[in-house]
Design a protein around this nucleic acid. Sequence first.
DNA 1: CGAGTTGTTGATAGTACTCAACTTGCGTGG
DNA 2: CCACGCAAGTTGAGTACTATCAACAACTCG
Lengths: 243, 243
Amino acid sequence: MAVKTNLTPLPGACAACAVRPFALFRVVPQARVGEIARVRSAVRLVRSGEAIRDTVFTLYAGWAFSWTTTPDGRRQILDFHLPGDLVERSEDGAEVSALTDASFCVLAKDRLCEFMGRDPGLAMSYADGLVRDRARLRERLTSLGRRDAMGRVAHLLLELHTRLSHRGGADRSGAPLPLKQAHLADALGLSVEHANRALAALRRDGVAALQKGRLDILDRPAMEDLAGWSSAPAVPVLTSLKA
Amino acid sequence: MAVKTNLTPLPGACAACAVRPFALFRVVPQARVGEIARVRSAVRLVRSGEAIRDTVFTLYAGWAFSWTTTPDGRRQILDFHLPGDLVERSEDGAEVSALTDASFCVLAKDRLCEFMGRDPGLAMSYADGLVRDRARLRERLTSLGRRDAMGRVAHLLLELHTRLSHRGGADRSGAPLPLKQAHLADALGLSVEHANRALAALRRDGVAALQKGRLDILDRPAMEDLAGWSSAPAVPVLTSLKA
DNA sequence: CGAGTTGTTGATAGTACTCAACTTGCGTGG
DNA sequence: CCACGCAAGTTGAGTACTATCAACAACTCG
């Protein structure tokens, strides 16, 4: 075939948006979806690995990730983004790249601010996403600070599995997971080789296996134990009135 | 003397609040400070090391920090809180403790939510704080993932110096810093001994010295270099319309 | 002047990194 | 249909950084 077939769906009408229940605009009643469309300034499709230069967008399909590099050129992945996530590309040196082929809705910063200024519920929905981002970063910080390689890998895999579950993208025994080992390593502060060894150990011990773009959870209790997993799900304090 | 003299000031009237320019309520015009007072449900004083059980509060004087423990009992400090910071104690297992003697204003969660629901500017001010929290956590994550001990220490010291500067609590050559080495270690994922050695190395090399509750920056360029310091100050994307 | 906390130092053991091959899987092109 | 060329995944050996354990010094407070 001449052109690679595009299997990644483009976002369509906001009124019928499949990811809206998980997204910033989940709080906007159906009667007012029209206002959402005016905030959307573009719809885009990117290939796996491509950088995303838009400042604010809602991921519609595919995965993305935010990252920085240290002056000596090593990469630190700061967060992974799943469909429905609101992503901001700030000017502090962090970049955003597509991890898989992906599509997203670009939001006009000024119109979004205006909308939030008019609708406090939307502002709180935005804050709610920030609180979740923060909770995730805190967990990851604890991983990098206090867990060994196997624990870090197990914890990240559990986190991603949980996030996917909430969107219906996973079943109890596993989920599709497009991460390369290099992504794991760069997110967890490990070398690729060491991440590989940790992953191999998890597989060897019958705990979990990440292969061919799929995660299989083989022994959930053992995995939670290794990861120091806290089942407490970090409920937002101030934004919980909504939703 | 019978009773230890209390040198930590208690918060007074909101209208004359010294930390309000840096705090959540900075966006409330002077004419409406009365509404702030109705959100404040109590004023408290805690001693260094004490746990804080209130869910939402604005630190007025002194330092605090948020932390968790892993199942094997090691502590990870998630963030340090300075006067003016809004602090939320979520139910995800994280705790908040006073690092020095400290005082703060307890906020009534429901009344604060109601206020934010009525005043989108306030909600955006809240979001702005969350964005800053996130940026700080991202920097720290990069430290733990990709910097060695000296780099981590140097980076954290620079971060705290910067935050203090913004509040007028530091001059160019240094600042008062009440951290123990154990705090540094637990924030940076190091053992106390290793944090000590890193600190000693910074002192030996004439880069920076942390002693007797005070940080002295001896060679700022060298310190920034060690820390992989990015001068770019992480400007909020969506909340920048305010302030 | 003790007693406990905080800071310092040394020796030793681990964990994770680096470097260097080598293997596998897969798409392109001959 | 198979060879080639990469990208991703593995494996091994040697090294570096950091943790742990154990004292000990310095400082603070009562």
